[in-house]
Design a protein around this nucleic acid. Structure first.
Lengths: 114, 114
DNA sequence: AAAAATATTCTCTGGATTGCAAATAAAATC
DNA sequence: GATTTTATTTGCAATCCAGAGAATATTTTT
C-alpha cells in the first residue's frame, strides 16, 4: 500500500518543462522563474521553481550542467537545463490527454454556464 | 514558512472537474472513474477519484448530495456531484493558462524534436 | 422468512510524494 | 567589505493514491 507514484506530469512540472523548452540555451532558474510569472500571472518562489526542476532531472526528463562564470558582477555559473527525449515524450503525452479531455469544450461554452 | 497552497488546479482536480461537467446528472464516482480511465488511458483507484472530489468540494468548486436508493441489486444511494460557479471559474483559469503556455507549440513541433 | 451470498457504492487509513516559501550558501565584481 | 546574481537547503503542509473496510440494496439459499 501507499503506492503513490503520480500518473501524469504535474502542473508545475508541465509549466517548468515548457518554459525550459522555450528558453533554449538560456534556461536557468532566473529566466525560467520570470517566464512562469509572466505566463501564469502568479508569483513563483525559488523553491517553487527548483523543486520541479530537480525532480524532473531525477526522473530523466531534464538534464543540466553548470555553465562557466561570466565576467560581471554576480556572474556566478548558472545551472542550465535542457529537455531529454523522455521529457519531450512526457510533454507529448500530457498534451494529448489535455486535448482529449477538453475536446469539444471551448472556453466560451464554459463561460456561458456562469 | 511552509505556506503551501497550490497555485493552480492540480492535474487530477482538472480531470475530475471536467469529468463531472461532462457527466451532468450522472456524475457519481463510478462513471467518473470510468470516464477518467477512458480519457487518460491509465487506471484509477477509488482513492484516486474520491480524494480530488472531496478536496474540490471542500474548496467550493463542487457540491454534492446523496441520491435516493434505486430498486436494484446493490442500488444504494449515490453521491452526485455538480460544479459550482467557482468550479467553472477554476476551469476557465486553468484552460487560459494552458492555452497560453502551449501557444505556438503544436504537437507536431514537439514530435519533430525527437 | 431468515440467513447467506452477491452487487454497487461510499468512506477511511496511512505512507510516499509533491508544493512552496523562506533561509542559507556560494561566487563573482565593485 | 559590500553588493549582485544565482544555487542549494530546510521544513512542513498539501496532495496522490491504493487498498481495506463499511454500508445498503437485491438475490439466492436453506
Amino acid at each position: 500500500m501507499g503506492k503513490t507514484k503520480m500518473k501524469f506530469l504535474s502542473r508545475p512540472e508541465e509549466l517548468v518543462l515548457l518554459a525550459v523548452w522555450r528558453l533554449k540555451e538560456n534556461a536557468y532558474c532566473v529566466p525560467i522563474k520570470k517566464q512562469l510569472v509572466q505566463s501564469t500571472g502568479h508569483d513563483w518562489s525559488f523553491g517553487a521553481v527548483y523543486d520541479p526542476l530537480d525532480r524532473l532531472e531525477k526522473k530523466g526528463f531534464l538534464e543540466s550542467y553548470l555553465s562557466d562564470p561570466t565576467a560581471k558582477r554576480g556572474g556566478k555559473r548558472k545551472r542550465i537545463y535542457r529537455l531529454t527525449p523522455n521529457g519531450i515524450l512526457a510533454l507529448i503525452e500530457i498534451k494529448k490527454i489535455t486535448d482529449e479531455i477538453w475536446d469539444g469544450i471551448p472556453l466560451k461554452t464554459l463561460k456561458d454556464e456562469l
